[in-house]
Design a protein around this nucleic acid. Structure first.
Lengths: 224, 224
DNA sequence: GTCTATAGCTTGATAGAC
DNA sequence: GTCTATCAAGCTATAGAC
């Protein structure tokens, strides 16, 4: 541990700015949040944002990068811990589980991060610079294990399955609250454990449905 | 038809502003786009934005509302045209097909609209005011038909299935391009017909996996 | 590493002539 | 319904003292 004094509230300025930025970017969007709002919430002076991160865009990149590293490490560890003959559900859980557990017990920071990622993943504006840069290497490792769990599947089907998975995952962890209203209160976006227990079989069955060997010949993918 | 002259390029100012706003909001976000950028692209004066729509937020709402009406009508018509014993795939297609066909043949406007909707659907910021307001009534009609196709399913499972469907659909029509890079060019986000042919069986299988009658008792939803 | 002060620009909104 | 002109407020970024 560094030269930290007694008080537990001594958070380095860099982290204070990152935390405040993450929270505010999650509530709205990159453009809706000013450096003034960020530094005000962080309790530091405006000029310190530029001193520590350079231009605003680099601060946004740093917000995405910070937890991406942790998430990538946890995902790789979970993938490597899988048995050689792991079923598809377990492979998917190695990818989604680390995000779930962090959102469940990581406090408001990880929930905010999930909302930022939902914006980044669903806009072509950020896709190449942020999603591809920070998440594609681990995605490739994940897809390699999916391939092993689905022998005979063609690559295109697996890629599109992954695409649907990302769509379902990002909107889930963003906790938008839409289903809460739509269901008249019977479902809660915040009940991530219940959603995750359904997401795994939903996605696994989806993968299997489009990765079957008979998906090649017919023009339309309807299935009995 | 109103008093339109001969030239086909005579688009009313209101529509010109909506078209420009839709295009620009799709490229970035609500906050990244200024009224000056919008009116400049529309080829009209700045003051006309406020004259026709009031504050900026109302313009955004109008962008979402315009095509929502058309989409809702087409979805309801497709749902009503379904046979009484329509399988789940056809019910899902009644919901997704109208968006697909518009994105395929509606020119850049519908593609831009899809990107706006992806932002709106994936952020809690817009959920209640826009998604719920403009899309939930038809979503309820859709869910009623899904229930008929899945006898014995409990409501919670159907709501969460719909939630995953929305996540997969919105990221699909947004055409972010991530899979293009991830797949090394083997898949193209713009190839909506190919994606849609996989999305239908993927989602239908997912619904069936979580809506089985035996999903109630066990704590975890893993399935052979 | 932190602070004050400020330059240079853009923003949404509107008043008022036509 | 459209135009010009403008206001007050906000923005990012930085220079320079400490």
């Amino acid at each position: 541990m560094p030269s930290a004094p007694a008080a537990a509230t001594t958070v380095p300025t860099r982290e204070r700015i990152l935390d405040a930025a993450e929270q505010l970017f999650a509530e709205a969007s990159y453009d809706a949040v000013s450096l003034r709002m960020i530094t005000r919430r962080a309790g530091v002076e405006l000029a310190l944002a530029n001193y520590h991160f350079g231009p605003k865009l680099e601060l946004f990149r740093a917000v995405v990068e910070r937890r991406a590293s942790d998430l990538n490490g946890a995902r790789l560890a979970a993938l490597e811990a899988l048995p050689a003959d792991a079923p598809l559900e377990q492979v998917i859980e190695a990818f989604s589980g680390p995000f779930l557990s962090r959102s469940l017990s990581g406090g408001p920071s990880w929930k905010a991060y999930a909302r930022v990622i939902a914006q980044v993943a669903n806009s072509q504006r950020w896709t190449s610079a942020l999603m591809t840069a920070y998440f594609d290497p681990v995605a490739q490792a994940f897809l390699a294990r999916v391939r092993e769990s689905l022998p005979g599947a063609c690559d295109e089907d697996i890629y599109w399955g992954f695409h649907f998975l990302i769509g379902a995952m990002t909107i889930t962890f963003a906790e938008t609250g839409r289903i809460d209203v739509l269901s008249g209160g019977r479902c809660a976006s915040s009940d991530l454990a219940a959603i995750h227990a359904r997401m795994l079989p939903f996605l696994a069955a989806g993968f299997r449905a489009i990765c079957g060997p008979k998906n090649e010949s017919p023009t339309r993918g309807s299935r009995a």
